[in-house]
Each structure stands twice: as structure tokens, then as C-alpha cells.
Design a binder for these strands. Structure first.
Length: 827
DNA sequence: GGTGCCCCGGCCCCG
DNA sequence: CCGGGGCACC
């Protein structure tokens, strides 16, 4: 289309500004951002303000006007989805070769960097990436090795501690413990780091930190990249953490010194990742430290109708710390936001199904219908209702494909082929399927390995007797696999490993193994598609690593002889398809894009929905404790984050927004009695349309049959009773790999499963054990002079001793003596 | 000492 | 769901 791209007589930027077709249709603010002069730029981009368009158009414009070459551009995003979107749009605008461009996620780019500089990084070139699960088990192993009490040094909390330290840029030596726990955690951190180094593996935070450190400590490398990347664009800047910001500074250098042009695009109102270290303050810091002359604000919203924007604006205005920004739209007010109160989560799900069908009858495509929820667990009941009604749907997130146990097992064997010293993978499969290697033997092995400072694989000879022979046999198996698969295609490698490992046989005989077998078959498909997609085809030619980097990377070979080693099609970096695929599995985890041509309702968390838009959005589960989440309700900062999350949810809608909540919800196998979310009260009444009577009583009607007689709350925040977890068995949502690789449509071919049948079955009558005391019943709505509206959770004792536990929403749940508290029932 | 099975506890959001 | 602990049985 833009034939003048390679025109040597092409006009300079000023003239292109006026006549480039790229710029047609941009509003003045967008135009200002796209054509901003080189230098630091901060763009405050409201939801639906055309942010991605601005980013991609700017890149295209920089290329078209000759201000940049593809190799001189770096564009960083947070999600794979966003990176792909950017690349796709860019390729539609310009006939460019995207291979030289560094467009990707922070972690993806770090991976690329570390593969190229693996020697400087002191890593094997085929280093593997630990996902959250792997990291946790590695940390557990360390804690056990140090003989610490897991009750005290809680593994999960320790992984959090380690990740935090890394995100602060801190190594163990940089930390000073305050107390015993701190000392022990620090020891774990150090030992964990040693262990990872020994095994040749890195976790997510390590990808970032190690890249940062190389740039910080190695001037030639740093200067090389600073010379190379003349333009850096950062998407979702509000979600960057401290380390990512420092990382950016390393790549950009000081703009006033070397003239690198950095454009940071973000929206403080959409900052929803504080829980993993994001600092909105990076935006203000950027403005100050990079000496941004003028902040460009994109406030014109092209997405949503008026009522939707009014609601979003009014809601977010309640947050105190904002840079300040108000969205406006030229579109009409549109339809008011519909609010639906359901008696139960089952009823809510049924309503959602009915709505989806209605929308389909009206001719709207289902992929324009999104059901959003706060947490993944909420999807099950909705899935079951959709499934039973035969409405196609697609779940994003949840337990992702590459995180499934059987897939991780297969991947562990593959990783051992690449690197037998990967102890995490070794432990995962050494006795799976069972080979007579038990806990006792592994303890011995681990002790021996610890003493000699070698890997488990290297230490098997230290274990005597039958057990030692079994271990040696396992090593033999791994070695045999490596030999048997040398030179094979990725597909053949995986097929071989699935058979030779015994996984296939194991799952064939397992009674619930069928679905797992299917997933293993799917893994082969995913690999096949990966090879095709990434250009690891037969005719792939070995190419040099990035030239400058290659020179610095101390004699990295620029050509390869081995047939099983091929270059990454995008970068020319030399890695084997297997390593590339394993990396892909760790970094993308089966991250999902919709399958082409498939018309299905879209189910996802609000977090996953960021950056997306739909004609019809349903925000479900608007209950205090769910949304806002109970862990975030009583703290100002985190409540503001929840509010931003709600803001993100609202602004996903183009035409119609629907919000639902329910009186009772099964969660963790227990019935909870919720009151509606405070966020509902923060929306403008004039933009709402209640489909059910407002403030409908809780103890009435349909909800009654779900009252839980065993409710026995366990203190503040625990608004649940005890009980079984009837639906927790088998299956699981999102089964099947959704990465666009396979034509398999799991929702269509999935057998009806028990869990789904159970879900919509009527609740048992056992609930009738409910009793009343002094006119109060479990589930009843009550009013208290000080705490306001609440719901009775538990009744205990009788007569003068009678006490109740009441969930007062924002005031938490309280135990009250009936004889003392002034509690009145609400009809 | 290993295996298989049952039960339990945890689980928000993510690369 | 997943991992882990406890337990009966080999």
C-alpha cells in the first residue's frame, strides 16, 4: 500500500505529516501522539481512545518517514495478545519484515536477549523457564533441604518474597533480614538462586533481573543496544514495576544524552496489577525523570455509548489518586445499563444463558458477547449452564493448557532430554509413572546431590542397591530418549517421548485418563502448529544472531552445522525447535486467542479482558466479597484497585452493558450469602435500568432453598459455612489447547460430565435443617443501626445466649448477641 | 520401602 | 483441580 516506503526521494517528516494516508482519520490528540517529535513522550490514553492504533501508527509513521528502521524499534507490551495484535496491525499498514523488530512482552524480549547473550548471562543457551508451579516446587525443595519448618517458612509466601526482592532489583546480598523469618527466607532465596543456577533454569522475575544486570554492568552491550534502539514504545506503562522501569532506562539511556526516543503509553485508571508489583507512580516518575515536555491525553472514546461512559466516569471519580482524565464520546447515550439480581449463582448463570440466546436470536454474533467475572472459579457454574443449553462458549485463562498435569509431565521429559540437570523436571517424572522409586530413595538421592553439589541426574550412582538400580534405569531411559529423538522433527520427538516415558500406557489404563490422553495428543498438534507458525520448516536457513550482539556475545557461532538446530525465524537466533517450543510453553502457557471463524460466547476474568472490547458485556458476580474481592475490601489502596478493575470491566462494552449479582453463591464448596457490591451504588442511577426490583429481600423466595444450615463462619471475612465440594471432580474448564493451533473445539466434542450435571441439579432438601431463633434465620437480611444492612450467616445458642453471625459487607462479618444487639429483620 | 487410594486444604488477578 | 499426608497392603 505505501509504495513510498522504499522511495529514496521520499519526503521528510514534515511533509509526510500532512499527506501520509497513515494519518487519515486521526483526531488531533492522536495525531499529536503519532507524530510527536523524537524524545520522551508520555501518552495518557483512556479506555477505548484508540491507544493501540496510535502505537502501531506511530511505528508505521516512523518507518515510513525514514526516522527509524525496523531494527531500531522496540515495542514492549505485557501480554502476548497485545504484542500479536500490534504486529498484525502493523503488517496490515506496511509491507515490512517484522523479523528485525523487537516487538513482544517484557518477558519475551528478555528471553530473546538472554538467549543471545547466554554466555554473559552465565546460562546454558538452552536454559529453561520455570513457571509459577515449577518455582513453587523448587522453593519447597530448597526449604526441605535447609530443614526449615514449612509452617514457619511458608513456601508460597517465600516465592512471593523472592519475586518481590527480584522486582526490587535485589539479590540476597542486598538484603538485610529484620527477624528470624527474614533470615530464613533470605537463606532460602540464596539457596534457591544457587539451585536454579546449578540446574540452568530461570523464573519469570529472573528473566527481567538478569537482563537488567547485564545491561547495567556491561557498558559495551548497553551502548550497543542504546545505539540500536532509537525508538522504544511501552504499552500499558501503568502496569510496569520498578525493575521494568529500570530495565527501560538501561535500554533507552538518558534521552538528553543519546537521543533515544521513548514513548510511554498508559492509563492510570486501568492499573490493575499492583498485586504483582506494578507501580502507577512510574508514570509520574517517567514524566519527571525523562523531562517530558507535554503529556498527551487521549480522552475521546470511540468505543462505548454514553450511559456506559457516564457510569465509568462516575465510578472512577471516587478514586483519590488519579492523574485526571475524563472520557467523552460523540456517540449517543445508547441504552441504559441493565442490572439483574438473581437468587443464586445457578439462577444468574441461567439468566446469562437466556440473554445470550436472546442476543443470538436478534442476530448478534456470539463472539460479541462476553461474560466477565472477577475470578476464574466463577466460570464453572456459567460454563455448566451454557453447556447444558448447548450454547457454544470459549473460556480464556483458568487452568491453561501447558499447566495441566499430564502436559507438564510430558514437558518435563522433554526438558530432561535437553538438560538432564533440571532437577525440578527430574523430580516431577522420575517416579511418574511409578518405577519403584519412592520418597525414601529420593531423600537419599537429594542428600547425596546436596553434599556433592551436583544434580540429581549426576548423583544416581550414590544410591546403593535396588533403589539405585531403578534410578540408573531412569537415567538410561532419558539418555535413550535423547538418542532416539536426535534429528527427529519436533512432532516425532514428542510422540516418541509420550510413548517411551510410559505416560501413554499409564493414562490408557487410568479410568479417567481419556481426556488426559487427548491433551497429550493435543500437545503434539500444538508442537506441529508451532513449528509451522514459527518457520522452523525444512528450508529454514541458519542465520547469524543479531550482528552487533553477536560480536559482543563472545564468539557466538553465526552458523550451525547440526541438523536439529535451527534459527528462530524471527530473530535468527540459533536455538533448536525443542528449546523454542519449551520456551513457548513457559512464556505463553497456552495463552489464548479466539479460534478463527468460531462463534462462541467469550468467558474470561476482568483482568484477561483488559484491552478487549465487545458489543455486549455482562459483568457477573457483583457482590461484596466477590467484586470487590474480600481480601481487598478493607484497605483503601486495594479497594481503589478493585474499583479500577470495575472501571476496566465497564469500559469493555461498546453497545450494551449488563451487570448481574446473586444472593447466594456456592464457593469453595460452601454457600455464601452475599450482599450486592458497593460498586453498584457508585454508578449513576440515571444510567441504570433494574430488571429486578431494587433491594429485593434476601430471605425470600427462591433463595430460601439454598440456605445453609451448617453455616459456621470462622471469623472476619469468612462468610461461609462448612460443607462438601460437590462439583470439584474431573474435567475442568478450558480443557484443550486454545492457542489457535488446533481445529478441535472442546465445547463441542466434550462429553457431558458429572460435574456439569451436578451443577444445575436442585439442591438437596437437607437444608431444611435450618432453624430460626428470635425471628432470625440464616440467609435473612437484617438491619443494624451502626453496621447497616447485612445477612445472617449463622445462628448459635438459644434464648439469652442466642448469637448470630452477620455479614455486613463493607463492615465485615460480626458476631452479635441477639439479646444485646439492636437488630431488625428486613422484609 | 513402594504403591495406590482417600481425604484434606487451598484457590483472586498474571507472564 | 492439584499436591501432600496418612494409611492399608504388598
Amino acid at each position: 500500500m505505501s509504495s513510498d516506503l522504499f522511495d529514496p526521494f521520499h519526503s521528510g517528516p514534515d511533509q509526510a505529516l500532512s499527506d501520509s494516508p497513515l494519518l487519515a482519520g486521526l483526531n488531533p490528540e492522536q495525531l499529536a501522539a503519532v507524530t510527536a517529535p523524537p524524545g520522551p513522550n508520555l501518552v495518557l490514553a483512556g479506555a477505548g481512545s484508540g491507544k493501540t492504533r496510535v502505537l502501531t501508527t506511530r511505528i508505521a509513521w516512523l518507518l515510513q518517514t525514514g526516522q527509524a528502521t525496523p531494527g531500531g524499534i522496540m515495542a514492549v507490551t505485557f501480554t502476548n495478545k497485545a504484542a500479536k495484535e500490534m504486529l498484525t496491525r502493523l503488517q496490515a499498514m506496511l509491507p515490512i519484515n517484522a523479523r528485525g523488530m523487537w516487538i513482544g512482552t517484557f518477558h519475551g524480549l528478555c528471553n530473546r536477549f538472554l538467549r543471545a547473550h547466554y554466555q554473559l548471562a552465565h546460562l546454558p543457551q538452552a536454559f529453561q523457564i520455570l513457571d509459577t508451579q515449577d518455582q513453587l516446587s523448587a522453593v519447597k525443595r530448597v526449604i526441605k533441604g535447609l530443614k526449615f519448618d514449612e509452617e514457619k517458612v511458608v513456601p508460597k509466601a517465600t516465592t512471593w518474597f523472592i519475586a518481590n526482592a527480584k522486582e526490587e532489583g535485589k539479590r540476597p546480598r542486598d538484603l538485610v533480614p529484620r527477624d528470624d523469618l527474614g533470615r530464613m527466607q533470605l537463606e532460602v532465596y540464596q539457596a534457591y538462586e544457587d539451585q536454579c543456577q546449578r540446574e540452568g533454569v530461570v523464573d519469570f522475575a529472573e528473566l527481567m533481573l538478569r537482563t537488567y544486570e547485564i545491561l547495567r554492568d556491561n557498558a559495551p552491550v548497553r551502548e550497543h543496544y542504546q545505539r540500536r534502539f532509537r525508538h522504544i514504545l511501552v504499552d500499558e506503562f501503568q502496569d510496569t514495576n520498578k525493575l521494568q522501569y529500570a530495565w527501560l532506562k538501561m535500554f533507552s539511556g538518558r534521552p538528553d544524552v543519546n537521543g533515544c526516543s521513548v514513548m510511554a503509553v498508559g492509563d492510570d485508571d486501568q492499573s490493575i496489577y499492583a498485586f504483582r508489583g506494578a507501580q502507577v507512580s512510574n508514570m509520574a516518575d517517567f514524566e519527571r525523570e525523562y523531562r517530558v515536555q507535554r503529556v498527551i491525553k487521549l480522552e475521546q472514546n470511540y468505543r462505548s455509548h454514553g450511559h456506559i461512559l457516564d457510569a465509568a466516569n462516575e465510578l472512577i471519580a471516587r478514586n483519590s489518586k488519579r492523574l485526571g482524565k475524563t472520557l467523552r464520546t460523540d456517540q449517543g447515550q445508547g441504552e441504559p445499563i441493565r442490572i439483574y439480581e438473581a437468587a443464586s449463582d445457578f439462577a444468574e448463570a441461567q439468566w446469562l444463558v437466556d440473554e445470550a440466546r436472546q442476543l443470538r436470536r436478534e442476530g448478534g454474533p456470539l463472539h460479541e458477547v462476553a461474560f466477565l467475572y472477577r475470578s476464574n472459579a466463577q466460570s464453572r457454574v456459567i460454563e455448566s449452564a451454557l453447556f447444558n443449553a448447548g450454547v457454544p462458549y470459549k473460556v480464556y485463562g483458568g487452568l491453561r493448557f501447558f499447566e495441566r498435569a499430564e502436559v507438564k509431565h510430558a514437558l518435563a521429559y522433554l526438558r530432561l532430554i535437553e538438560n538432564p540437570n533440571d532437577d525440578t523436571s527430574f523430580l516431577r517424572v522420575v517416579n511418574f509413572p511409578a518405577r519403584g522409586i519412592g520418597a525414601r530413595t529420593l531423600e537419599q538421592l537429594q542428600d547425596a546431590a546436596r553434599i556433592s553439589g551436583r544434580s540429581l541426574y549426576q548423583s544416581v550412582t550414590a544410591v546403593p542397591g535396588k533403589a539405585g538400580a531403578n534410578l540408573a534405569a531412569f537415567n538410561g531411559l532419558i539418555d535413550a530418549m535423547r538418542e532416539a529423538t536426535a534429528g527427529l522433527t519436533l512432532r516425532a520427538i514428542i510422540e516418541h517421548v509420550v510413548q517411551a516415558s510410559g505416560l501413554a500406557d499409564f493414562y490408557r489404563t487410568e479410568k479417567e485418563g481419556q481426556e488426559r490422553l487427548e491433551n497429550l495428543a493435543e500437545l503434539v498438534n500444538a508442537a506441529e502448529a508451532f513449528v509451522t507458525q514459527e518457520g522452523f520448516g525444512k528450508d529454514a536457513v541458519a542465520m547469524p544472531v543479531d550482528e552487533g550482539a553477536g560480536a559482543i556475545a563472545q564468539g557466538l557461532p553465526t552458523a550451525v552445522a547440526r541438523v536439529d538446530v535451527l534459527p528462530d525465524a524471527e530473530t535468527g537466533e540459533i536455538i533448536s525447535p525443542l528449546v523454542a517450543f519449551l520456551t513457548h510453553a513457559a512464556l505463553e502457557a497456552g495463552d489464548n486467542q479466539a479460534q478463527a471463524g468460531q462463534d462462541a460466547v467469550q468467558l474470561m476474568t476482568v483482568h484477561a479482558a483488559k484491552g478487549l472490547e465487545f458489543n455486549n458485556v455482562f459483568i457477573t458476580g457483583l457482590e461484596d466479597g466477590m467484586f470487590p474481592h474480600e481480601n481487598s475490601m478493607n484497605d483503601g489502596e486495594s479497594l481503589e484497585e478493585e474499583r479500577r478493575l470495575m472501571y476496566v470491566a465497564i469500559t469493555r462494552a461498546r453497545k450494551k452493558l449488563h451487570i448481574s449479582f446473586c444472593q447466594t453463591r456456592m464457593l469453595h464448596g460452601q454457600t455464601r450469602y452475599n450482599i450486592k457490591s458497593r460498586f453498584l451504588d457508585e454508578l449513576p442511577e440515571a444510567s441504570l435500568k433494574w430488571l429486578t426490583p431494587r433491594n429485593q429481600g434476601f430471605g425470600s423466595g427462591y433463595a430460601k432453598q439454598y440456605q445453609d444450615a451448617w453455616a459456621s463462619g470462622k471469623g472476619l471475612g469468612s462468610v461461609v459455612g462448612a460443607g462438601a465440594q460437590p462439583w470439584r471432580s474431573g474435567g475442568g474448564q478450558g480443557s484443550g489447547y486454545n492457542g489457535g493451533y488446533s481445529g478441535g473445539q472442546k465445547w463441542a466434542e466434550r462429553r457431558p460430565q458429572d460435574e456439569f450435571k451436578d451443577l444445575t441439579a436442585p439442591m438437596p432438601k437437607a437444608m431444611a435443617a435450618n432453624r430460626s431463633e428470635g425471628g432470625f434465620k440464616v440467609g435473612q437480611q437484617v438491619f443494624h443501626n451502626k453496621f447497616g444492612e447485612g445477612v445472617v450467616l449463622t445462628l448459635e445458642g438459644s434464648g439469652p445466649d442466642a448469637r448470630v453471625q452477620v455479614n455486613f459487607g463493607r463492615h465485615g462479618s460480626k458476631w452479635l448477641m441477639l439479646s444485646v444487639a439492636k437488630l431488625t429483620p428486613i422484609e
